[in-house]
């Protein structure tokens, strides 16, 4: 093949008159896709405390503690500082009680601020079915 010096020059000159490829980030934001994997969020009314999310989370970011055995009161703590945003918990949940939001600006100055806590009572299985339908 014949060699041509400075073959890239026309392309470079053409780009002087083009719009920038980037956006001015904090002022303009790109839309994230619909299926974006942001932060896991719990819908407490749907949770049946089967603990499959706790078992499958690769980062051990989900914790469920029993507050009261009689009242069926539970506390779920999602440690977002450990979360790796893989959405396995969403897939493991049999009742679709977990979902990923589209939030991506989650930086804070302390890990503790990333912790999300949900205190809720477990639903009976019959209620569960009626809610789903």
């Amino acid at each position: 093949m014949k060699l041509k010096p400075a073959a890239f020059i026309p392309e470079l000159l053409r780009h002087i008159f083009k719009k920038p490829a980037t956006v001015r980030y904090p002022f303009e934001k790109l839309k994230v896709p619909d299926d974006f994997r942001g932060t896991p969020v719990l819908k407490p009314e749907l949770c049946i405390v089967c603990r499959s999310c706790v078992r499958d989370c690769p980062a051990f970011a989900i914790e469920i503690t029993t507050l009261s055995e009689e009242e069926k009161k539970y506390k779920m703590t999602i440690h977002n500082d450990r979360c790796i945003h893989c959405a396995q918990c969403v897939e493991s949940c049999p009742t679709k009680a977990l979902f990923m939001d589209t939030e991506f600006e989650i930086a804070t100055d302390s890990r503790l601020k990333l912790k999300a806590e949900y205190i809720y009572s477990r639903q009976k299985k019959t209620d569960q079915k009626s809610q789903q339908t």
């Binding site: 994230v32 896709p33 299926d35 974006f36 994997r37 790796i84 945003h85 893989c86 959405a87 396995q88 897939e91 990923m100």
Partner: peptide, 21 residues
């Protein structure tokens, strides 16, 4: 890749027995 999987780098599309999305 982000449109398909929801992330730019770690696509997490595979699961044992198929794909997730």
């Amino acid at each position: 890749l982000e449109i398909i999987s929801g992330n730019r780098v770690h696509y997490a599309i595979n699961t044992i027995g198929g794909v997730r999305r």
